[in-house]
Design a binder for these strands. Structure first.
Lengths: 238, 238
DNA sequence: TTATTATTGTCTCAAAATACGACAATAATA
DNA sequence: TATTATTGTCGTATTTTGAGACAATAATAA
């Protein structure tokens, strides 16, 4: 069998979170002529670190670099080996040549989640897919293989890390109000939070810098904008 | 190149924690005639789930089944690709035939940690190693490749999960006193805990069942023994 | 100009969780 | 029978958290 430029048996999948319209969303790809939906993923080059491969794929799909990215689990069940699905995808793309046969072999998948600013992204399909779009977490299509399980575990891990590392601001633009940040937390945790308590907790961390006020044009007091200093976050994460 | 029975490029390593003499310890292997120390690890068979492969290896090394086991990270840097080290090990074992050449290729490693009852184990070396022994966490030998990093991350993850899932009892025999359990927590967290607070917290979880008293022969009040019901733990973990 | 509306920043008080020490109980020994 | 060491448990002080209250204020309506 011909050797490909990629390491065999190893794939990665990424759950790319965004926030828009008060809702948590993720990027989902749809493959050509198959009706199959999947997480954005890819493979490692032989001379490339795993994390670099994932960042490379993330850049291709979103155009973004320097993204908040976290590995959370590696899926390796035999049950996820379904060569007929990949065969369907290849056939639909008329990529049935020998040089793609390695894709039909068994893979384990290292799963990552990313937090990005929704407004920064123009999702880009890859060669095999005809769309890469945002879907609300509660309106996901049926995902192929074990990708629904991967999404569930991503959300679970994000929730745990949210209280531990307080990373919600990575889903927002550089300047945001505390109410916006609270909406992010509520969307992730799927519960209402108390305003006073939330603000005390977040500001108590000393990670946010108060900036000028934000005048929305609405008939009420203008909130302050805040920015988030990455270098403090990196200190805090340790 | 000949195909082996194992998936190429994929390995696993396990950080097997035990508790003895008030100290947290892990199992380390020493390879024949090389002075190289490493974590116990192995490879996946082509028709085997990742978790099953790790449990298989764990059984071979410790004789134990039904172990508390948790995957915590997958290491995939290019920097960990050092074929000359594996070459050294193979040469020292006179295993230089072609059927071992696949071991010289690049690997990513899925890392797990396990919590076991020290007294239940008779550590078993594998074919390439002449010992598999307990080492205190603060007296580890120099480990090959990135295994020191793997151990560090295992301990970090264990500490985080300790407060979240309270799994310390997996390091003890079926019957134990609260003071013994407290020593386990102190060894893992590397800090003293307050006795009253610790007991209130642990017992408040309702996971432990009080059993008969334990008469040590010492000149003081006899403590109660406790047992830990696995099925409650599984409920609690969710 | 002035009142109204909606939302914000901040504070206070209550409730819950946690930290810390105290004290009686008790198993073995002197 | 007193002593020693450790245990089970409790009470109080401290800290953290939850929930509401209130004045401040930007735009709008009167």
């Amino acid at each position: 069998m011909k050797e490909s430029a990629f390491l065999r048996h190893i794939a990665y999948d990424s759950v790319i979170f965004g926030f828009s319209g008060e809702r948590l969303k993720i990027l989902i790809m749809k493959y050509h002529n198959t009706g199959l939906f999947a997480l954005p993923g890819g493979f490692m080059q032989r001379d490339e670190s795993l994390n670099d491969a994932v960042r490379r794929g993330l850049k291709e799909r979103t155009g973004l670099e320097n993204i908040y990215l976290e590995q959370f689990y590696t899926f390796g069940d035999v049950a996820r080996y379904k060569p007929e699905i990949m065969q369907t995808i290849l056939e639909a793309n008329e990529h049935n040549s020998e040089s793609y046969q390695w894709l039909l072999d068994r893979f384990i998948s290292v799963a990552y989640y990313a937090l990005i600013n929704y407004n920064d992204v123009v999702p880009m399909p890859d060669a095999l897919s005809d769309s890469c779009d945002w879907y609300s977490m509660d309106e996901l299509p049926n995902l192929m293989l074990d990708h629904a399980e991967i999404v569930a575990k991503a959300l679970q891990t994000l929730r745990e890390n949210l209280e531990k590392k307080l990373v919600g601001m990575n889903l927002l633009p550089p300047l945001f109000t505390l109410t916006e940040l609270q909406r992010v937390y509520e969307a992730i945790l799927d519960e209402k939070l108390h305003r006073g308590t939330f603000q005390r907790k977040i500001l108590g961390l000393g990670l946010l810098q108060r900036q000028e006020k934000y005048f929305s044009g609405k008939a009420h007091k203008a909130p302050y904008l805040y920015s988030f200093e990455d270098y403090k976050m990196s200190l805090w994460q340790c």
